[in-house]
Computed example of a mutant assay.
Amino acid sequence: MANWNDPQPRSGLGASPSLGGRTGTRVGYDAGLRRHMLSIYNYMASGVLLSGVVALLFAQSGMAAQVLTTPLRWVIMLAPLGFVMAMSFGVNKMRTSTLQLLFWGFAIVMGLSLSSIFLVFTGASIATTFFATAGAFAGLSLVGYTTKKDLSGMGSFMIMGLIGIMIAMVINLFVQSSALQMGISILGVLIFAGLTAYDTQRLKQEYYVLAGTEFAGKAIVMGALSLYLDFINMFQFLLSFMGQRD
């Protein structure tokens, strides 16, 4: 593991960062960490793009309006959860290539599920909310990547909050309260904003444990899945009170 308290590189006799000294190790870890995180963000961004394209095409084809009014809509809505559970519980037994295929499959079925937003909200408000989410996500990821403060406590608090709003969402299916829905949306944005920073720091810290192991490739896919879920959920909660309805 890199020693972040090492002194700055020296010039002259005794300075040999290129010979595998501690400074050289730190530089190597820095470069490896950047590649690792870039791979995660590339997977995550590609997954979001794939979901967006599938959602748009499915909605514009007219199939979304037809399918989402039938019992088949429950299959489309629950399929992403099935992919997430399969990846989470099977990660240790699956090959990296299998996880990658499941990730792309998840992105596709998530796109089918997201197609309903094009039937409810205007395209302009969807685009505006998407770019607002992208900007917030980038800023929060930067905070999580650069901060020296341990965010694990905040992460635990956010996960408890997530369980709370899930319960509130189930309750609101029966009471149909607009005020409760607004509160859920606001809390949802805040919770997934916090989880974005927390997950970024967690993935950064995991690199130093997993670097050089055969699990490193799987960690990239699972890390992309975590950040994808943070982004999409923050986008959906934000859209629920920022979006303009048709």
Rank of each mutant, 00 (worst) to 15 (best):
G212R: 10
A168L: 15
F58Q: 01
T23I: 15
R34K: 15
D150L: 05
G243W: 02
I108W: 00
A197S: 10
M154G: 03
L151P: 09
A64W: 01
Y228Q: 11
A216Y: 10
T129G: 00
Y207K: 07
G212S: 08
G212W: 09
L13H: 09
M182T: 15
K93E: 07
T196S: 07
N92P: 09
G12E: 14
L229W: 07
G90L: 02
F106Y: 15
M158L: 06
K93L: 00
V189Q: 05
S226Q: 13
V67N: 10
L180R: 10
A132P: 11
G111S: 14
I163P: 00
R10L: 12
F83W: 06
R22M: 15
D246C: 11
G47K: 01
A31K: 09
R34P: 02
A31H: 09
A79I: 11
S61Y: 02
S177W: 09
S113I: 08
G52K: 13
R73C: 09
G144T: 01
F118I: 12
W104I: 15
N5R: 07
F215L: 03
R245Y: 04
F89T: 05
G144S: 07
I171Q: 13
F192D: 05
A132Q: 12
A193V: 04
G139K: 01
V209S: 12
V120L: 03
A193K: 03
M222V: 09
F192H: 06
F192I: 14
A127W: 14
G164W: 05
